[in-house]
Amino acid sequence: MPTATDQFFAALAHRGEEPLLRRNSGIIRFEIGSKGKVQRWFVGVDHGRLTVSKRHQKADCAVLADTDVFENIITGTDNAFAAMLRGALEADGDLELLQLFQRVFHGPVQSTHPAVTDHA
Score class of each variant (00 low, 15 high):
118 D>S: 11
52 V>T: 09
83 A>L: 03
27 I>S: 04
89 L>Y: 03
42 F>H: 10
44 G>V: 00
24 N>V: 07
35 K>N: 12
55 R>W: 07
73 I>D: 01
16 G>K: 07
24 N>H: 14
116 V>P: 08
41 W>N: 08
5 T>K: 07
29 R>C: 10
26 G>T: 03
43 V>Q: 02
23 R>P: 06
110 Q>W: 06
39 Q>G: 00
81 F>E: 07
88 A>Q: 14
22 R>S: 09
81 F>V: 06
71 E>A: 02
80 A>G: 02
82 A>Y: 10
41 W>K: 05
20 L>I: 08
58 K>C: 00
21 L>H: 00
31 E>A: 14
111 S>C: 07
43 V>M: 02
7 Q>P: 04
1 M>F: 12
110 Q>L: 13
62 A>K: 14
2 P>N: 01
119 H>G: 06
4 A>H: 11
55 R>K: 15
40 R>M: 08
39 Q>T: 13
78 D>V: 00
55 R>I: 10
107 G>M: 06
65 A>C: 06
75 T>R: 08
10 A>N: 11
96 E>M: 08
6 D>K: 05
51 T>G: 04
2 P>W: 03
61 C>G: 04
119 H>N: 13
109 V>C: 01
78 D>R: 12
19 P>Q: 13
43 V>G: 02
118 D>E: 15
79 N>P: 00
47 H>I: 02
